[in-house]
Structures are given as structure tokens and as C-alpha cells.
């Protein structure tokens, strides 16, 4: 009892440290733009909320379009991934076939090779497929996911076989079993995977920068970089803070709402 209270207190201290950059981001983004100010680093607001930085960030970019593209990209990747990882996860969890372990290891290879490592060959590939400069091209390399297959395999393995066996005895096909019994039961596992998938693709920078040219297919991180990566002079910290807040807000809010559900869904994946 006492030990756990000490633990919470120590964790609270860590949390204060963890929160500091966010606190600064919030305060700096809401400061009026009278820069050259010496107390730019202060964690306490120097006055009432000023929308200057948000207005400048919002008008320097095309946030509505970037939001739409990013949501489309993450949603599209997730939709295709759900199909590919469920099917493959089931095969590895439930079917006996020659070379299963070898093929599984081959799958895991992808875990180590995100497109950032293989930029040039992947660009050549999406160009050959006619997907260069489109959101589909950004999404393509991610449509198969070793991480997802791994998670789904664990999820399926952790489920009792009773339902499936009963359904199979009743004459259901494997695909029917997957669609009507396993997928609904795997909801929490899929939810956990969804959060991991959306988070990583929402935040990726280098690959979307490379794979897309047209402004109409630009995503949030690439857009944000246009005012965080100035080269010959200093950054405008307030605007950077405001832009970062705008980019991260949807995920932060989403996490605040679904926090409990997310943690409990991870438990169901059988990652013990």
C-alpha cells in the first residue's frame, strides 16, 4: 500500500518533467508575437491568450486540406491493413502448412525495413505502379504490416477454439468463421493495432515528403515542416508551437477520450 503510493508520487514527478515541453508549447503558442522577448522560455503565460501565432500558422498553410489528406491516408491504410493482417494472422495462428515458421520470419523482416530505409527502390516501385504523387502511393508500402500480422496472430491464438470448432462442425467455411466469429472477437486487438498504425502514419515525415509532389496530396507533417525547417535564420518559436499543436491536436484529443479503452484493448491482444 505504502509502496504503491510512493510509486505514484514518483510517477507524478516524472509526469511533471514529461509535461514541461507541452506546457511550454501551449504557453508559447498563445503568446502575442512581440518577439525578441527575453522570457520566451517562461512556462507561465505573459498575458491573456493571443491568437496571433495560430492565425499565422493557419494562414501559412492549407490545414483543412492537410487534415483531410492525412485522415484519408491513415484511414485508407488502416482499412486495407485490417483485411491483410486478419487473413495472414489467422493463417499463422490456426493453420498448419509447410514452411509456416520460415514464412513468418520472412514477414517479420518488414518490421525492420520501413520505407524510410528503402526510399529509392520504393519510389521506383510506386512509379512503375503509376502511384507516384498520390496518397495511394504513400499508402502502398504500408498495406501489408508485419506488426499487425504479429498482433493478430497473438490475438487469435489467445482465443478459445470452441466457437470455431462448433461452427465448422455445423458446416461453416473458414472464411465465414473468420468474418463472423473471429474478427468480431478480435475487436480489441484490432483497436490496439489501429491506434499504433494511425499514430505512426499520422506522424511520418520523410516518406510522404518523397512520394508526393503535388500540393493537393500533401499531408500534415510535410505541411508543418514548411515553417519548422527554416535554414538561414532562427525559428519563429511561437508559430512552430502553434503549428505543432494544430497537427497533434486530433491525436491528443482522441487519446484523451479513448485512453482507458486503448490500454485495455492491448491487454486482449495476448501480449503477456
Amino acid at each position: 500500500m505504502k509502496a504503491s503510493r510512493v510509486g505514484v508520487i514518483l510517477a507524478a514527478l516524472a509526469a511533471i518533467l514529461w509535461l514541461a515541453p507541452f506546457a511550454w508549447m501551449g504557453v508559447a503558442s498563445a503568446r502575442p508575437q512581440v518577439s525578441g522577448a527575453l522570457d520566451l522560455a517562461s512556462l507561465f503565460p505573459s498575458g491573456p491568450f493571443s491568437p496571433d501565432n495560430y492565425i499565422e500558422a493557419w494562414t501559412s498553410g492549407h490545414f483543412p486540406l492537410w487534415y483531410a489528406n492525412t485522415i484519408l491516408l491513415c484511414g485508407g491504410i488502416l482499412a486495407v491493413q485490417t483485411v491483410t493482417v486478419s487473413l495472414a494472422g489467422y493463417a499463422f495462428a490456426r493453420l498448419q502448412f509447410p514452411g509456416r515458421e520460415t514464412i513468418f520470419t520472412l514477414f517479420l523482416l518488414q518490421l525492420l525495413l520501413p520505407p524510410a530505409v528503402l526510399v529509392v527502390p520504393n519510389l521506383v516501385m510506386i512509379t512503375k505502379l503509376g502511384l507516384f504523387d498520390s496518397l495511394a502511393g504513400v499508402a502502398a508500402p504500408y498495406c501489408a504490416s508485419a506488426f499487425g500480422v504479429f498482433l493478430m496472430r497473438q490475438t487469435f491464438r489467445a482465443m478459445p477454439r470452441d466457437f470455431e470448432d462448433a461452427a465448422m462442425v455445423d458446416g461453416a467455411t473458414r472464411l465465414q468463421v473468420i468474418r463472423h466469429i473471429l474478427i468480431p472477437l478480435a475487436g480489441p486487438g484490432l483497436a490496439a493495432f489501429a491506434v499504433v498504425s494511425v499514430t505512426s502514419h499520422w506522424n511520418e515525415f520523410l516518406w510522404p515528403l518523397m512520394a508526393v509532389s503535388s500540393p493537393r496530396a500533401q499531408v500534415l507533417t510535410v505541411g508543418l515542416a514548411s515553417f519548422t525547417r527554416g535554414a538561414e535564420a532562427g525559428g519563429e518559436w511561437g508559430v512552430i508551437a502553434a503549428g505543432t499543436t494544430l497537427v497533434a491536436a486530433p491525436l491528443l484529443l482522441g487519446f484523451l477520450f479513448f485512453q482507458r479503452r486503448f490500454v485495455s484493448s492491448l491487454v486482449f491482444t495476448g501480449l503477456k
Partner: peptide, 24 residues
């Protein structure tokens, strides 16, 4: 003309080179 913002100078070099290698 479609103007494409390509990051910093080095990013632009990298992106141009990648686009040339990809045939676009």
C-alpha cells in the same frame, strides 16, 4: 505550373535526385 514546396535546400536536392532516379 504547379509549385511544389520541397523542404530545406538539402531536402530539395534529395527529392529532386529521388524523382530523377524514379524517372519522374
Amino acid at each position: 505550373v504547379t509549385a511544389v514546396y520541397t523542404g530545406a535546400y538539402d531536402d530539395t536536392n534529395l527529392k529532386t535526385r529521388a524523382a530523377i532516379q524514379a524517372g519522374r
